[in-house]
């Protein structure tokens, strides 16, 4: 089965959950910016949860399938259309051979994910299919998708085959869908919960107050490596030269400009700027889905609360998996 890229749009890349285990060699983790949405997409089409899908940024990405596919579109609402008709998100979809899927642009959020039953058949490099363009590894030929690229799709399991067939017979899309508001709401302003960063106490009192009470705006300097915010400048009480240390997704670094940069999926493995905060894992999908000019406030929470939120999301996923399993496999699947 094949997917033909007709137009890459702003940026479309193949991403899974990223490269784990080689950061000590400087290998960037990369992976989906909004892993939760990719994960739910994979659950909807009965893939393993970390299977690679297509991460679509902003708008314009268009592809055609040359064989029938079972897909799910999750993440931000980039107004997907199939053969000119709006196609609903957060549910399994039958994509007929010869159909074209395109993304008109964001109604909410920034990144949509297309999960494809059978997965995208590209080789794993250093343990992952995620595209990491700088090192030219992962994804399709180590780069973002371009016009004319053809992606092979893996073999379908019996379950996936059955689900696809029952969807095909339905002649319409399922009338049920994932309640995704628990993952992210796609709002123009968000409250992002953070833990105090390692160097939080080194920042001036004024800067600490600004960070925790002020509003910060996402600038257009936002890509898969980092999101730069503008707002009241953040300064250390006294400048200190810091040694490079490990960083992770959601680390909020403050360079000399005083503008906080939140490190995203394709961040470097180490960084040397003072860290004022660390976004909690449960809020990373919300963060990733912010559009430029969105406003955020940062709220400091405890590590216990951060963990509790993560477990809440996991409970949500567990229940969702059961619900989807029952919907799609017990007898009369799909309404």
């Amino acid at each position: 089965m094949t997917i033909k890229i007709k137009h890459p749009g702003v940026q479309a890349t193949i991403q899974d959950f990223g490269r784990i285990g080689a950061q000590k060699y400087g290998i960037v983790v990369s992976g989906a910016m909004d892993k939760m949405s990719l994960r739910i997409g994979n659950i909807l089409v009965h893939n393993v949860e970390h299977e690679a899908g297509i991460e679509v940024m902003f708008y314009g990405t268009t592809f055609e399938c040359t064989e029938d596919l079972l897909i799910a579109i999750t993440g931000g609402d980039l107004q997907p259309e199939m053969d000119g008709n709006a196609v609903p998100m957060w549910r399994p979809i039958f994509m007929k051979e010869g159909s074209t899927l395109t993304f008109k642009g964001p109604k909410s959020g920034l990144l949509a994910y297309v999960a494809i039953a059978g997965g995208i058949d590209v080789p794993e490099e250093i343990g992952s299919k995620s595209t990491f363009s700088k090192a030219r590894i992962g994804g399709y030929k180590g780069r973002a998708l371009q016009t004319g690229d053809e992606l092979a799709v893996g073999l379908l399991s019996d379950t996936q085959d059955k689900v696809m067939q029952s969807l095909q017979k339905l002649h319409t899309h399922p009338t049920w869908y994932v309640n995704a508001t628990k993952v992210f709401a796609g709002k123009k302003s968000e409250k992002i919960r953070v833990l105090k960063g390692s160097e939080y106490e080194l920042f001036s009192e004024k800067s600490q107050t600004a960070f925790t009470t002020g509003t910060y705006t996402l600038t257009p300097q936002a890509d898969r490596m980092g999101y730069t915010f503008s707002g009241d400048a953040l300064r250390l009480s006294t400048w200190e030269e810091l040694l490079s240390e490990g960083v992770t997704y959601g680390t909020i670094q403050v360079p000399a400009s005083g503008k906080p940069i939140v490190l995203m999926a394709e961040r470097q493995t180490t960084g040397g700027y003072p860290r004022i905060g660390q976004v909690i894992s449960a809020d990373l999908p919300k963060l990733a889905q912010l559009q430029p000019n969105s406003q955020v406030t940062f709220e400091i929470v405890s590590i216990e609360e951060a963990e509790k939120e993560l477990f809440r999301l996991e409970d949500f996923i567990e229940e969702l998996k059961l619900g989807i399993y029952l919907k799609t496999t017990t007898g009369g699947m799909t309404q």
Binding site: A22, Q23, K24, E245, G246
Partner: peptide
């Protein structure tokens, strides 16, 4: 995984 720097190790 564990990532070493000059004087730290980050444990994931």
């Amino acid at each position: 995984e564990a990532v070493p720097t000059y004087n730290t190790v980050t444990v994931f």
